[in-house]
């Protein structure tokens, strides 16, 4: 059972990481919003799946590489990162192209578990339908 007053928040990420400010802004809102102890999920679809790819290195373009920050989300109790399979496939990617993101499960003796869950487009539609609040980026 969810505690009273806890709402389901979904942050929808549909933009690639560096071409616009959307992706970084979304991540900052997630980190700040984590203080409010809501039931938070992140969705990555369309170009948003590019945010989670491995081996990003921004040294040559003069902007901050924020991809390592996704690995800190577990510390903020944000551990449901849903990635759409069709969006990956359309871009020639598989789950192996994404960085590993884990969290420690408090209820299971702090066992490390994967935060990224690959789901189908239909499951993504269901996930969106199941929210109290949707924040789009």
């Amino acid at each position: 059972m969810m505690e009273e007053g806890v709402k389901k928040f979904l942050y929808v990420n549909r933009k690639a990481p560096y071409g616009t400010i959307y992706a970084l802004e979304a991540l900052e809102v997630v980190l700040i919003g984590a203080a409010f102890d809501q039931d938070v999920s992140l969705a990555f679809l369309d170009d948003g799946v590019f945010q989670l790819t491995r081996d990003q290195n921004t040294d040559g373009v003069g902007v901050k590489n924020f991809s390592p920050t996704f690995r800190a989300l577990g510390d903020y109790d944000v551990n449901k990162l849903y990635v759409e399979r069709e969006s990956l496939e359309e871009r020639g990617l598989t789950a192996d192209d994404l960085q590993e993101i884990v969290y420690e499960d408090e209820d299971d003796d702090w066992a490390e578990k994967p935060s990224i869950r690959i789901i189908s487009r239909a499951e993504m539609a269901d996930l969106m339908h199941d929210q109290d609040v949707i924040l789009s980026f």
Partner: peptide
């Protein structure tokens, strides 16, 4: 170390937990 690894300074509750 946290900043080096994750590129952010942790929130206070994250710091205290660690």
């Amino acid at each position: 170390d946290y900043y080096e690894e994750y590129q952010i300074a942790p929130a206070v509750r994250v710091l205290i937990k660690a």
